[in-house]
Design a protein around this nucleic acid. Structure first.
Length: 285
DNA sequence: CCTCATTCCTGCGGGC
DNA sequence: TGCCCGCAGGAATGAG
């Protein structure tokens, strides 16, 4: 699933291929892909025709493309979204949702999304930072991210630490996979109460979050080729480096205990039962 | 304001 | 062989 490192890989690929190009026509193939564009699919296509893409930016798992109009195209990949560059005439993908053709006749930008959790929209005047994603916290790779601010905010929360890591209004870019990986590195169980973490423990956890994201970006950066921007999280390059996610029953690479899987928020959490003991008194689930 | 459960969607794989 | 069901999960939404 695309989390920050996968989205950053996409951002870099897109930057290489779309900056400076002018949109000719846009084709919306599935209305759900532009459901966040409240003015409707027709407006989406109209407002983009003739616009030049100036940049490709990212905050957390969101991308946006500032335009010469001062607007921006916002993109979120959801669980299965891909942004692909394909030569005109390449057969349509089964789950092609939106197609951008450019005035130069070069490769098309295609938004392909099987499960349609992702989507695109245009933010009016959003070139600098779209208002629609202003509520998303800075991510830990952002130079303006405040470590002290995060530690304080985390410790003010009255929730469990994994829930907090997944809260995009507190720290963005972290999803289920990298949350589990960072917690394993920090030797913390995700059910630990945030308000019981010491400042240094919270700071260490943040360090592990940043490390695992950074390492994954480095891996992702090796994997895309000229015309295909790789956003396929499940066939991910970083899979080999995962220590807990998806490794139920396999030995912990630190202590050898079999990795456990627990139900969590209608999904799964993976952890080491020995390195990451469940906190005393924590409720099941 | 804060926390949390629910909901959206579709392909895959296991079980029977 | 084929059907059913659980699972994958980010984030908006509304309840409390």
């Amino acid at each position: 699933m695309p989390e920050l490192p996968e989205v950053e890989t996409v951002r870099r690929g897109l930057a290489q291929w779309v900056i400076g190009r002018t949109v000719d026509t846009v084709e919306v193939r599935h209305p759900r892909a532009v459901r966040r564009h409240t003015a409707g699919g027709g407006h989406f296509t109209d407002v983009l025709a003739g616009r030049t893409i100036l940049d490709v930016r990212r905050r957390g798992k969101y991308l946006w493309l500032p335009l010469d109009s001062g607007d921006a195209v916002i993109g979120h990949l959801g669980m299965s979204g891909q942004l692909l560059l394909q030569p005109a005439g390449t057969p349509d993908e089964t789950h092609l949702r939106v197609r951008f053709r450019f005035t130069d006749g070069g490769p098309e930008l295609r938004f392909v999304d099987q499960r349609t959790f992702g989507g695109l929209s245009v933010s009016e005047g959003g070139a600098d930072l779209p208002a629609e994603i202003a509520h998303i916290a800075r991510d830990p790779m952002d130079p303006d991210f405040s470590d002290q601010g995060f530690v304080a905010a985390l410790r003010r929360r009255r929730t469990e630490v994994k829930r907090a890591l997944l809260d995009q209004s507190l720290i963005s870019g972290v999803g289920n996979i990298y949350a589990d990986e960072a917690l394993w590195r920090a030797k913390l169980h995700g059910a630990r109460p945030t308000d019981a973490l010491t400042g240094p423990a919270a700071a260490r956890l943040l360090g592990h979050v940043r490390d695992v994201l950074g390492e994954a970006i480095t891996e992702g950066g090796t994997s895309f080729d000229a015309l295909y921007v790789n956003v396929n999280g499940e066939s991910g390059y970083f899979d080999r480096a995962l220590n807990v996610y998806g490794r139920e029953g396999q030995p912990c690479r630190r202590c050898g205990a079999p990795i456990r899987r627990e139900a969590f928020m209608n999904r799964s959490s993976y952890s080491c039962p020995r390195c990451q003991p469940r906190p005393r008194g924590a409720l099941r689930g």
